[in-house]
Amino acid sequence: MIAVEQLTKIYGRRTALDAVSFEVPRGEIFGFVGPNGAGKTTTLRILAALMEPTAGRAFVDGADVTMQPDRVHERLGYMPDFFGVYDQLTSAEYLDFYAACYRQPKARRKKITDDLLELVGLSDRRDQAVDTLSRGLKQRLCLARALVHDPAVLLLDEPASGLDPRARVEMREILKELQKMGKTIVISSHILPELTELCTMVGIIDQGRMRATGPVQDVIRQLTSGRRLRITVLGQREEALAVLKPLPMIHAVTTFNGAIEAEYEGDDTTAAAILQTLTAGGIKVSGFNQLEGGLEDAFMRATEDAP
């Protein structure tokens, strides 16, 4: 649905994007993660045909963003990281205006407006002035605006920034609803926990370079080398370290808050073998858990070795 090939953007002497490539198949939710200034917004603006890349190509549903911007605009809903609302208009008029800009016939616009207000839960606010809406409600209205022409692809730039936890959960519910409708969604964010649950795919970008991309679990596996154990022992930390370090399947051992963290290569059988070795060595193990390698961890690893 979305294909980005070797996308490069250079502002003056600064390289904002350096040969970024990724693909998002139909119906997936792609989380675009990276610190501020990593090039997320630049990539999304190029995909929305608002900006020309210095080099490389990008396609939205087969339409080239530089050659066929009109076809791209037809297929794509773009929600920037700012609200962009007009004063003096009500929510309903605001949506109607954009529906008209997308050349939706007048007869259909009322239904589109009503349906979208319903979808984002703003039906009771249809006659309220847009500039008096709260931040969370504005954000929802802007999402509705991106949907007035029923696009197949949604580009959302930081849709959850500045929202309180409740508004964030509501936004997530709406996005899940949209995924059920079969839309392909790209969400950029620097807030990771909200993405782990929602996204089916993820791309980690830092300083204009794509560090990793693919299905969430693949990326986590790819970036966190092996699996991790947290072991707590009763007062015999030094002895435990002495037993663990020479084992061939263990890459690294660190101590963290009084507990031992060991990275190892292998599966559950290997973990059981490590526990056996420890107890056979006379060490009293009081805690032994496998640490879940999360997206957060993967992200920190992907960005820490940046030049």
């Binding site: 037809e74 794509l76 773009y78 920037p80 962009g84 605006r145």
Partner: peptide, 13 residues
């Protein structure tokens, strides 16, 4: 200034 110009550019207008 209101950052709405991009939103107009992505429409069919």
């Amino acid at each position: 200034e209101r950052q709405t110009i991009d939103l107009l550019f992505v429409t069919k207008l």
